[in-house]
């Protein structure tokens, strides 16, 4: 337990000292939200209708941005070798690293999403729905992304390949995330149905992704 805690603290400490990946993710999120109205026009009715979807796509891309760094630093400086030889099983190391990565990149998006939702004329229940669905769904994105990050960790052009590998697998999360977010602001489907499936996706990812990522990391050289 103390080893897991030490790992979690170290990840947060590195993130806070080196560059502030979380803040960059939020800025990127804001830029994406700003760009969309330029493309589809400033019609608030339209924006309010597709607002939850825009927020979700922006969050998905912002999460993807930092994923290639998840294991890369530890691979390059040899830490990954030692993490494999430590007291924690590699699967647990991966869960802890994902948790820390999510706390730095995913959680800030959940917090600012309602604020940015106002810019897209999403209101009241809709804002809460977006925040809740992001809270439930972004962990799945981090975990699925961890598989891709582990598969591409030792490759030179890993970043683009990571996106190509991971994005198709995020389709279910996107579908149910946007469904839940839209359902919250009215619609034919009750909010709970897609939301619970979204939670299930995150839990399933938590159960399976660490094993796949660990297998990938073990065979990286």
């Amino acid at each position: 337990m103390s080893a897991a805690l030490a790992l979690f603290k170290r990840e947060l400490r590195i993130a806070s000292r080196a560059g502030g990946g979380g803040a960059m993710g939020v800025v990127f999120f804001l830029i994406l939200i700003t760009i969309v109205p330029f493309a589809i026009g400033p019609d608030l009715n339209l924006l309010s209708r597709i607002g939850p979807a825009i927020l979700w796509i922006a969050a998905l891309l912002a999460m993807l941005l930092g994923l290639d760094r998840l294991f890369l630093g530890d691979h390059e400086d040899g830490s990954l070798d030692l993490l494999q030889m430590g007291a924690l099983p590699l699967e647990v190391v991966i869960v802890v690293k994902c948790l820390a990565h999510w706390a730095v990149t995913g959680l800030p998006l959940v917090i600012v999403a309602p604020l940015f939702g106002l810019m897209l004329a999403v209101e009241g229940d809709g804002l809460a729905g977006v925040a809740a669905s992001l809270l439930a769904g972004t962990p799945a994105l981090t975990l699925i992304g961890a598989i891709g990050a582990a598969l591409t960790v030792s490759l030179r052009r890993g970043g683009l390949l990571l996106a190509i590998l991971v994005l198709p697998f995020t389709v279910p999360v996107l579908i149910f995330g946007v469904s839940a977010a839209s359902a919250a602001s009215g619609g034919t489907v009750p909010f709970a149905t897609p939301f619970l499936i979204l939670c299930a996706l995150s839990l399933a990812a938590l159960a399976l992704a660490p094993f796949a990522a660990a297998a990938a990391l073990r065979s990286r050289d």
Partner: peptide, 28 residues
Amino acid sequence: IHYAGHAEALKNALTARENLQFWSALLG
């Protein structure tokens, strides 16, 4: 087993003490 490879497994952002504290906790 201690493995001391070519790479030092040190994090630039952390101090020497923090690096060692971390490995002490993680290696158990």
